[in-house]
Structure formats: C-alpha cells, structure tokens
C-alpha cells in the first residue's frame, strides 16, 4: 500500500499533556549510558542553573513521538512501520526539557516524496508547555524502504 500523499500539510491535534518526571529522565539517561548528574541529581542540576533535573537533548524525541506517533500510526497514511528507518532528525531548543514540565506535542506532516525506491516522510512537531511556552521543535524524516510506488 502506497503512502497517502493527501496527508501532506495535515496538522494533527496536540497530544494529551505529557508530564516529564525525574524517574523517566533518569531512565532515559541510563538507557543512553549517560551518567551526567544534571540528569539525575537535583542539586547538581540546580548548581548548573536549572530549576530541577534536565533531560538529555535527544529526550525530546520521546515527547515528540507522543504527537507524531498518532500521525505515523494513522491507518489512512499507509506507512509500513516494519520497513521504516530514520532518515534525519533535527531539534531546535528554546530551553532544556526539565523535570516537572507538562508538555504537549503537535505534529504536522510537511512532506511526502519518493527517493529512488523509498518514500521519505517529513514531520515537524512543536513541543510546548501547556501554558504555550515553546520548548523544542522536532523535525523528523522517516524513510519507508521500498515504499515508492
């Protein structure tokens, strides 16, 4: 099944609020093997000028997926996830994600195009606090191998 081009330009509803916990940040830091205390120790984070422990930069993908996941999994889009690999990823941060943040992620499908035998799907996801403060923009390109048709 081909990827549905009609989805280009579609903005999905903002996700339910995602509450960033210290435990989740510590879990993520452990999973990437990063022992920097600003991710686990509140006093160390405060000494570095933060309100609480902060998340590693790429933790933004976890929040981003809460928004873009709904887009990618939309059956009408027709993306075959087992054939998907990550093509590009970019983040633009207004500030680090911090424990206690309550965030929403809102995804827009910005492009779908063929690249040889593959299909490339680009999303832009805005991560904001529930009060509307911009925290991060996540720009992702996914590649469905062999999906061109």
């Amino acid at each position: 099944m081909a990827v549905n081009r009609d989805y280009v330009g579609r903005t999905f509803p903002a996700s339910e609020p995602y509450e960033v916990s210290r435990v989740k940040i510590a879990d993520f830091a452990a999973a990437i093997g990063d022992s920097n205390p600003v991710y686990t120790d509140r006093a160390a984070a405060q000494a570095a000028g933060h309100a609480d422990v902060i998340a590693p930069p790429t933790f933004a993908i976890v929040v981003s997926i809460v928004g873009s996941g709904a887009a990618i999994a939309d059956p009408g889009l027709g993306l075959n996830y087992a054939m998907v690999v990550h093509g590009e990823q970019r983040f633009e941060y207004s500030r680090p994600i911090t424990a206690g943040d309550v965030l929403t992620a809102q995804a827009t499908i910005t492009d779908i195009k063929d690249a040889g035998r593959n299909v490339m799907l680009t999303t832009s996801t805005q991560i904001r606090t529930v009060d509307g403060e911009h925290v991060c923009t996540a720009l992702s390109t996914l590649v469905e191998r062999g999906g061109a048709g």
Binding site: I32, P56, H86, F91, E92
Partner: peptide, 26 residues
C-alpha cells in the same frame, strides 16, 4: 546513535553549556 553524539556534545559543552540546535542525517 544520535544520543551518543549528544553525549559527546554535552560532555564538551559542560554543565553551563546549553544545546540550542542539534541535527543529524542517518
């Protein structure tokens, strides 16, 4: 893999450094 590159950046930048942009192509 991007997270490992992120560790490299934040370890270099130190606790008072802040990442404002980070992008890669896989």
């Amino acid at each position: 893999t991007m997270a490992q590159a992120g560790r490299f950046v934040t370890d270099w930048a130190g606790d008072r450094g802040t990442v404002t942009e980070f992008g890669v192509r896989f």
